[in-house]
Design a protein around this nucleic acid. Structure first.
Lengths: 203, 203
DNA sequence: CTTGTAATTTACCAACCAGTCAACTATTAT
DNA sequence: ATAATAGTTGACTGGTTGGTAAATTACAAG
C-alpha cells in the first residue's frame, strides 16, 4: 500500500558519496537531501537520525565492498598470496578512479569514518569495528588458503598477520590522502606481505 | 606596550586537547574559548580564523612531539633499530595515558586531522603532510644510523622503509582508535621492523 | 471507487556555527 | 602624567545545524 519511491536509496547513495568525499560532520542533512533531490522532511520519513542513516549506509557499503574486493581476494583460481597483492592493487585502482573524478585521494570510506567518529559515537564506532573485523577475517582466510597451498609456513600467525596487513593498508591510504598522491601507495603496497609473521617469532 | 597575557597560549592548548579528543569540526571556537576561559572576542584578537589557529597549533604540536618522541628516536646511546621499537612503545604508553584520562584511544593528533581535513582544506593538508615528511626523515635518519652501525644492510631502501613504517604506525593507531583498545597495538607494533626493505628487492 | 498507507512538501524550531565590531580596560614606554 | 598599545568584553551578524509537525499528495489493495 501507499506509493513507492527510490528516494531512500538516493539518500543512501548521496550520503555515501558525500561522506567519502568530505566527512561525516562536514556534510549536513540538507546537503544530502539536495544532492539526492529530496526534501528534508522526506529524509526524516526514512531515517530517524543522521546516525541511523549512517548505520544503514555502512551495511550497504560493506556489501558493495565485498562485491568489489572480497570476491577477488577469495577467488580460488589464483595463488592466495598473489590475491592479497592483487587486493592492494585493486584498492589503488579504485583510489585512482576517485582521484580522477574528484581531484582528491579520498581514502578508505570506513577508515575515514572510524577516525572521525570513534571518539564521538560509540554505536558507529562499534559498527565500523565490525567491518574491520570482517576484513581481517577475509585476509586471514586468504592466509589460511596460502598455508593449505604450501605457499606459507604452517607456523604463520594468520590472525596477527591479517591485522597487521589491514592496519598497514589503512595507514597507506591515510598517507596517500594526506599527500593527495597515490605514487607511494602503489609502491609501498607491495610490501604488505612482509608483515606476515610466524607464531613462534613475533619479533 | 600594552598588557601581556597567556590567553593565546591557553587557547592553543585548549584547541590541541579538544581537537585531539574529538575532531576539528566537532569542536567549535566557542567551546575552545570556554575551555581556555577566554571570550570569543579575544580569540579573534589572536587568530584571524579557526584555520589560522590550527596552523599555529600544528607548529607547536610538532615541537612537543619532537621533544617527547624524536629525541629518544635519535638518542645515540642505544642501537638504532632498538630505538625504533622503543619509539613505537613510547607511542603506546602515551596512548595508554590518554586512554586512562579520557576513556578513549585518541590516536595520532596529526593523523586524525589529516584524515578529516585533507579533502577539505588544502593549506592544512599541506601542513600536515609536512609533518609526515619530517617524521619520515627522522625515521630514515635512524635507519641510516643503523646501517652505519652495521645493524642493517647497506642495500636498505631507507626512504621506502621509513615511509612504510610511518604508514604502519598510523594504521595501527587508527585500528586502536576504532577498537578503543590498545592491546593489538602493543603486539602489532613489534612487527614494524619487518617493513624494512632493500633497494634491490622491493618485493 | 473508496479507504488505508506510504511518500512528499512546507514551514518551522532552538541551538549552534564562524566571524565582526566597537567600546572598554589595563599596561608599558616615554 | 600621558599617549600609544595590547588585551578584554559583550552584543551582534547571517547562515547552518539536526530535527519536528502537520498538512497534502499519490498510489495500491479491497
Amino acid at each position: 500500500m501507499g506509493r513507492h519511491s527510490d528516494a531512500k536509496q538516493r539518500i543512501l547513495d548521496s550520503a555515501r558519496v558525500l561522506f567519502h568525499a568530505r566527512s561525516y560532520s562536514a556534510v549536513g542533512i540538507q546537503e544530502i537531501c539536495d544532492h539526492a533531490a529530496v526534501k528534508k522532511g522526506s529524509f526524516y520519513h526514512f531515517f530517524p537520525s543522521k546516525q541511523a542513516l549512517t548505520l544503514e549506509l555502512l551495511d550497504q557499503s560493506w556489501l558493495g565492498f565485498e562485491q568489489a574486493f572480497v570476491s577477488s581476494l577469495l577467488n580460488p583460481e589464483r595463488p592466495a598470496l598473489q590475491r592479497i597483492v592483487q587486493f592492494f592493487k585493486l584498492g589503488c585502482e579504485m583510489q585512482q578512479r576517485l582521484l580522477d573524478k574528484t581531484g582528491c585521494v579520498l581514502g578508505c570510506p570506513f577508515g575515514n569514518l572510524a577516525m572521525e567518529l570513534s571518539t564521538q559515537d560509540d554505536l558507529l564506532r562499534a559498527k565500523l569495528l565490525e567491518f574491520f573485523h570482517r576484513m581481517e577475517a577475509v585476509l586471514e582466510k586468504a592466509l589460511l588458503e596460502a598455508i593449505s597451498a604450501g605457499e606459507l609456513s604452517e607456523e604463520t600467525d594468520t590472525k596477527l598477520s591479517a591485522k597487521a596487513m589491514l592496519a598497514y593498508l589503512e595507514g597507506l591510504l591515510l598517507m596517500a590522502k594526506a599527500g593527495n598522491n597515490l605514487q607511494d601507495f602503489t609502491v609501498l603496497s607491495e610490501m604488505a606481505l612482509k608483515l606476515i609473521t610466524n607464531r613462534t617469532t613475533p619479533l
